[in-house]
């Protein structure tokens, strides 16, 4: 009964939403701000990956907020799981995991680092890169039965990365009067690794932060959150 009513209501809502979307017809071109980004982004920001330009610079405040979302979620998870630990996992890791654990984390880290570093040049950036790095951590966690060594560095890395993100933003404010303006560093030649102002730095900060936060959540799931 409840499912039926819920289905009807949800159907109505979705139907209306879809109708609203359909009422435009096919879009003819880029929207107002998209057009500006496509046209000017290259010069203004110096990054050839427009998405990264939007994420890190044009809408950098959103990204700062997003980083805070992940930060608070990780803090909340760690807080809760330190008060109510989940307990030790039941199974022993299989031999596949034990084998790959010795070999794979390196390449995964490298790959993740590459994605992070080239965020302004190729698809990717801090977030996907950080997630990839965190998967390396997951692999290690799955293989270990005791607490892992790198756990205690995670909070430090996370804090420092977040703090540097905020400081980079303030640098822009103090030097150019605009928070998170990336031109505080030289814009360089677009297409090169060292270009686009502070975008690589912010990408790195984001990458480190995301990696350490996701890893922190995984560590908390696996081994509790440490002592209160």
């Amino acid at each position: 009964m409840r499912t039926f009513i819920a289905f009807l209501l949800a159907l109505y809502l979705v139907f209306f939403a879809a109708a609203a979307f359909e009422s435009f017809g096919e879009p003819q071109g880029l929207g107002r701000i998209a057009e500006h980004y496509a046209a000017e982004g290259f010069e203004e920001v110096g990054a050839i990956n427009l998405v990264t330009a939007v994420v890190v610079t044009y809408r950098g405040l959103d990204t700062l907020g997003e980083v805070s979302v992940l930060f608070t979620a990780a803090s909340a998870v760690i807080l809760l799981l330190s008060v109510f630990p989940l307990g030790k996992p039941a199974n022993k890791p299989s031999s596949i995991v034990l084998l790959t654990m010795k070999v794979l984390p390196g390449p995964i880290l490298l790959f993740g680092g590459y994605i992070i570093a080239h965020g302004h040049l190729t698809p990717g950036g801090g977030f996907p890169g950080g997630a990839v790095v965190a998967s390396a951590a997951l692999l290690v966690l799955l293989g270990c039965t005791q607490e892992v060594g790198f756990a205690k560095w995670l909070t430090f890395a996370e804090s420092m990365a977040g703090f540097s993100f905020a400081m980079l933003g303030f640098w822009g404010l103090l030097k150019l009067g605009q928070f998170l303006n990336n031109s505080v560093l030289f814009l360089g030649i677009p297409g090169q690794l060292l270009s686009a102002g502070i975008i690589p730095l912010i990408s790195a900060a984001i990458g480190v932060k995301v990696a350490s936060e996701l890893s922190g959540i995984l560590v908390a799931y696996r081994c509790g959150g440490g002592k209160e």
Partner: peptide, 9 residues
């Protein structure tokens, strides 16, 4: 102001 340029950009 944040980012680059002025709103709505």
């Amino acid at each position: 102001p944040t980012g680059v340029g002025i709103p709505p950009f």
